[in-house]
Every structure is written in C-alpha cells, then in structure tokens.
Design a protein around this nucleic acid. Sequence first.
DNA 1: GCTAAAAATGTCAACGTTGACATTATGCGG
DNA 2: CCGCATAATGTCAACGTTGACATTTTTAGC
Lengths: 338, 338
Amino acid sequence: MVNIKDVAAEVGVSAKTVSRVVNGESAVKPQTRKRIEEAIEKLGYVPNQAARLVRTNRSRVLGILTDFVSTTPYSVEIIRGIQDRIAETDHSLLIANTAGDPAMERRIWQTFREHRIDGVFYATMYHRHVAFDFDHPPLPMILVNCSSPDHPELPSVVPDDYEGGYEAARYAIEQGHRAIAYITLNPLILAAELRDAAFRAALSDHHVPPQEKWIRPGIVGEIGKEEVVAFAEALALLGGKAKKKPTAIVCGNDEIALQVLCAALSLGLRIPQDVAIIGYDDFHVISMLVEPKLTTVALPYYEMGRRAGDNMMAVLSGADMISRVEKIPCPLVKRASA
Amino acid sequence: MVNIKDVAAEVGVSAKTVSRVVNGESAVKPQTRKRIEEAIEKLGYVPNQAARLVRTNRSRVLGILTDFVSTTPYSVEIIRGIQDRIAETDHSLLIANTAGDPAMERRIWQTFREHRIDGVFYATMYHRHVAFDFDHPPLPMILVNCSSPDHPELPSVVPDDYEGGYEAARYAIEQGHRAIAYITLNPLILAAELRDAAFRAALSDHHVPPQEKWIRPGIVGEIGKEEVVAFAEALALLGGKAKKKPTAIVCGNDEIALQVLCAALSLGLRIPQDVAIIGYDDFHVISMLVEPKLTTVALPYYEMGRRAGDNMMAVLSGADMISRVEKIPCPLVKRASA
DNA sequence: GCTAAAAATGTCAACGTTGACATTATGCGG
DNA sequence: CCGCATAATGTCAACGTTGACATTTTTAGC
C-alpha cells in the first residue's frame, strides 16, 4: 500500500510537505500543492488514519450506541440525521447496537475505547430515561431521544412529546369533536407519560369532559417484547353496545392508529366522517400508506439527529455546553384521517 | 491514557509479555498471565487498536456499505444479522449509507480505505443488480441482497424471490382460488421480475388461466421516490363493475398488501372470506399489525446477514470461495388473511 | 541589490504496538 | 548434576504519520 513517503519521493519533496497538503495546512506553495495532489491521485495514496491516530491521539471517529434504534423502523431517522450532519465534518461514524443487552453494551464501550473514539451518541428507540454504570462518562457523550436523571450534565436532544400530544388533542377538539377516546402507548415509556398528560390537559383546558373508560391501553408488555392490542380495544370502543361512542380516537402512535383504522373499517365506519383517527410518529410506512392517509404528529427524528450532531461538534470544539435537555417540536401533519 | 508499558512496569515485566497476554498467545506462564491480567484490570488498560494496526496492517474492522438499508425499515434486519455474526468474532463494524448518491459512495470508499478496513459488505435495500466503478474491488467484498452481473466473482447472498413468489401463488391455488389477481412491485427491481415470473409460472403449472387485466402495477416511479398506487388498483379490481372479480390478491410486497387490505375493508369485504390477501416480505410493522394478520412470504433478511458474515469470515481466512450467488429460501408464513 | 521578515520546506523523534530474533529459565533423561 | 530440549521472557526496530523546531527560499521595502 502506497504511503506518504512514496508520494514525497514521486514529487521530490519531504514527507512533511505532503502531510501538510493532505491536512490542508496553509503554508504550501500553490504550485507544490498541485504537484503533490497530482501525485496522490496518480499513486492512489490514501492516508493511514491509524498512523495518524497513533501520533495525534485524535481518531476523528464518533460512535453511535443504540439500544434498538438501528434495527427499528422509524427511529433510524435519528441515525440518518446524525450521519448527514457528521458527513459535513471530517469525522466518520462507528455504529453499534446493544439490543438491550448490558453485556453487549460493555463490550461496545470496550471497542469504542480501543478505537479511541472521540465521542459517543447514545440513542434510544423510545423516548425514555436511561441509567449508566459509570459515575462520569468515559467520553464526550450526547443523549438522543433519552435523558438521564442521574446525569443532568449530559446534553440531550428529545422530542417535545407533551406539546405534540397536546396538539393532537387540541386539533380533534378544534374539528368539533367532543367524544374523544385515547388509546395509549406502553405506559413504561416516558413518551407515553408525556403524551398522556398532554391529552388530559388539552381536554381539560378546552372544557371537554374526559371519559376515563375511553382512555385505553393500546400496547402492553415489557419493552422489546410488547404486544399491540389496540384492535380489540378499538372494536370494543366503536362496535360495543354503549349508547355513546367516541367520534374521534387519538392514538399513542401510528401502529396503534393502524389497528384502530382496521377496526373502524371492518365495522363499516367511514373515516373521518364516522370516526376520526389521529396518530403519532408519522411513521411513513403506515401514515402514508393507509387509506385514508393518517393525520398524525410527526416525530422529528431526523432533525433530532442533526441537532445531536451540532451539539457533538460544539462539545468537541470545547464550547462548554450549557448542559441541558433540548426539546425539538413535534408538528401536527394534517392528512385525511381527521 | 494508560499504555502497554505502564502495565509492564506495574508487573515488572516487558511490554512484549503484556502484548502476549493481551493477544492470547500461549507462551506465558499462568502465574505471570494472572498478574498481568490483574494489572490490566487495575490500571484500566485498553489496547490501542490504531497502534496495533500501524504495526500489523490488519484493522479488524469490517465495513457495511448500503444504499438505503440502514435507513429503511425492514432491510435493517440484514444489518442485525451481520452484526450478530460479527459479534462472535474479534472484528467491529463501520456502517455507512450512500443514500443512493455516487459522490457519497466514493467518499465512503475513501473512508474505508483510510481506516484500512479488512472487508466490505455491500448491501442494498431491494434485491437488485448493482454495478461498480472499479474493475477489481479494492477490498474483500460480499454482496448482500444484490448481485453484480459484471462481477460474477463476488460472493453474494440473495433471497430466493422466485421460489417465494411461486409459493405464494401456489398457496392461493391450493386454497381453492382460481380467480387470482397480482399487484406488482416496481418493475425496475430484480425482485419484481422474479416474483412476477414465478407467479405466472405457478398459475400455468396448475392450469389456472392467467388474466392479464388482473396483473396490475402497485408501485410506480424511480427507485428512492416511488409511489404506492395499489389502493386505487385494488379498488378498481374489487369494486368495479366487472362481472367476475378476483377472490384472491397476491401482492408484490406487504406495503401493497396494506393498501389492498384498506381497499377491501372499505368496500365492506371480509378477509379472507370475500377476498384473500397474500403479501411478501413479512414486514412486521404491517404483517403483524393489520387485522386480519397478513399471510405473507418472509424475506430472510436476518439470515442473509448472518450468511454474509459467514462468507466474509471464510474469505478473510483465505478460503477460496467457490464464488457464487447463494440463494436463501423465503418461507411462506400463514396467518389469517389468506 | 541588500536586509529583514515572512513563507515554504525540511529534519527528526515520538506515538503504542508487535514481529523477528535473542536470551534466559525450567524440566527431564541419563 | 550435566547437557539439552523446550518454555518463558526480553530486546529492538519498524509500522506511517505529524509536532516541534530548524533551515532554506521568497518577498517586500528601501
């Protein structure tokens, strides 16, 4: 493999000068620079990052440590966002998946340290709280889609689930609905808590009496092996014998909305005339594919990834972050289902 | 950061001996080994991969180069498979996304070479043919979910779409259907071609007269910005004025099946009594969530990833692969929709 | 055309590790 | 307890790059 000395020899110049060109330092005569660039091209020289790292102790590699993210449909957008932002810099990315396994997580930290990673993005599938083994993170770290109550000093980027949940309910009310049901996410997740509270607050703020029996669980079971039971709930809500039935159903996420939609359709109900459906996440595979298309609150995963990238760059360049939780807004996307 | 010499000094032994312990070489007295291991633990020594690489020129890092995979719901399973297989070895993984951009692809190859990657998995979102700039790949390479007609020497792992497509049609026939429609994938994709041909072959083999007007496109438009139009097609097929209507619809993939299901349901049809629906991919977000749950052909993405990992290990250990395209079977998953 | 400052380039050691080879300790048969 | 094979450990240079510093070349001002 051709190295920096080969290039230097080809041009008749010292290795250091080639190094300067490769690293874009200024003190090189344009003419020399040109000849070196040509030689690099001609010989197919590719700088050896490892050698550089040995010398400088800065790897220019960032890690992404996720629980299930990169193996989960929608939240991969977080990774896309990080990737796109990092592509603008001279860093590259090492992505690793714990699959929720602590042993795996330790192994990954080890790998990260072996490679002298410059910083780590810690991203989760669901918006939730996380805890860590260490007292102080071994590397600069940005939390994405999660926050750590024990480590308030860690910068984190999260969706504003409360605002989004509020907006969903508000929109239903604005459309004239007064009989609004809510099928919740798995209550174990922070996102569920926030959206839930927001739903109740919105109803209360707009003087719509909440109906406890219309607030039903749509997903149950431990994280990683949850089950979606919204279909049965929706069937009961919309097809039961109760005199008064909801005219709108706000859903904890789009997966729930999909089941609710199946239930409504199979009962012969028209959407949104007979029953309006509002989702959450704007998970395109569902929201853009069902008919009618889903009105839903978009989770700004891509944007969150980008912001996390911004924060990482800030941290690495030594800017002392006013460490804080940054909330990214979740805009309501109006389509046909409500 | 503590290095190998610090450990050596702590134990009162040479750096080389510590190196031997770290690399699991045999010629070390158990007692010495133990003392060194304790010192490593005590000092928190983490070997510097970069320094090792500079010396050995073997990075123990593999790259995954994808078009849209890691940003696409189902095919992430390929990555999971590769990850799980590689986790069993002493390698780590660098994942990069081209997003279909050739400039990005070049940039990534550059990064891979800078890091002296040992090998590359080239994975695509759809099963398709790929072409490369180079005459000879710069690194050991395994194709996943794609094959390259120009480079028959590259080992590749692909799903057996033909067999899966055949199976789907055969199952419909076996269930007694004779009026079977087929809503196709984007014909630009190899998978579409294979499933398509298999559908026709299955009908022909079982003496079911094919109806050209019942073979309709479900997805149109360029790759990366395709549009799913299956809803309208299904509506026409199932709700039109034609006397004879299909009793079963085989779909090019689960996204199409989702739209077909919405169409059937909104026409008041019962599934599978009035119309049976068969998908393809077993994309859980759809197949397990719709009601009735989808009968579909599973795409063995996870398994493909693992097999690709096996192949990579074989190639790296110098086994001269009888270079070939390895087809992984696509089993039919029977659920409620057909 | 001389000088001083600035620009361009060069020299050399060091980063942390491991291969090749050298040396020293240990065990064993007699 | 000697000699020899084998096991255990050590020495040292080299991998490709860049930081600190040194030297040479160019430029600008007069």
